[in-house]
């Protein structure tokens, strides 16, 4: 008779103890994990799109609030003045979110580059949107404009067989471009 309550109590206590332990470890490692992603995943992408900056891009990042959302903005400086900004947005692809980092030149209002930093697209097909062949198409475009892929009536050539993935990357860029004016204003006003 006392068997069922005992099973419930023991299992509940074990789960509670494990949850407590995990939340402790999680809060201990959270900062370090964020730093690892910053250095290993976002860092190379940001350096790519803000190429030619003279400052430490990771150290000079700053958080801004746009549309009630925290956004980490990387600021590239040349001769002490900001010349370009980059930040991360995402589009919905074939296998989940496609996270992209887009860079914008604040002096000429042009796109400096686009990098796909995280995705779950099909290896060998959708994953091709991470390649330069695809992403270089965005370089140097004016921020004003629609940036759609060809099947959607735009002029970005999509990767063959990977329309969804290509659309997701373009969607990420469109979202970033939509935020551009507000982010630029916040970053440039000290």
């Amino acid at each position: 008779m006392s068997e069922i309550p005992r099973m419930l109590i023991v299992l509940t206590l074990i789960c509670a103890a494990c949850a407590l332990l995990l939340s402790g470890v999680r809060s201990m490692t959270a900062d370090q994990i964020e730093r690892q992603i910053l250095v290993n995943v976002q860092g190379p992408a940001v350096e790519g799109v803000l190429e030619g900056s003279e400052n430490d891009l990771i150290a000079d990042r700053r958080d801004v609030r746009v549309d009630d959302r925290e956004l980490t903005v990387f600021v590239g400086k040349r001769g002490g003045d900001p010349w370009a900004i980059a930040y991360q947005t995402s589009g919905v692809g074939f296998g989940g979110d496609v996270e992209v980092i887009a860079g914008f030149d604040v002096t000429s209002d042009e796109i400096t580059g686009l990098r796909v930093v995280m995705h779950k697209e099909t290896p060998g097909i959708g994953s091709k949107v991470t390649e330069e062949q695809f992403t270089k198409q965005f370089d140097g475009r004016a921020i004003e404009g629609q940036h759609a892929i060809e099947p959607d009536g735009g002029d970005i050539e999509s990767v063959t067989g990977a329309t969804y993935s290509s659309r997701a990357a373009a969607e990420g860029l469109q979202k970033a471009a939509a935020l551009y004016d507000e982010v630029k204003q916040q970053v440039l006003t000290p």
Binding site: V10, L11, I14, C18, L21, L22, R26, T29, I33, Q36
Partner: peptide
């Protein structure tokens, strides 16, 4: 119970390797 205990240690390993042995 065993699975809960094992899963807990596995998540700890995952978090620690992600944080310190990327």
């Amino acid at each position: 119970s065993f699975i809960v205990i094992i899963a807990t240690f596995v998540v700890i390993v995952e978090l620690v390797t992600q944080a310190y042995f990327y």
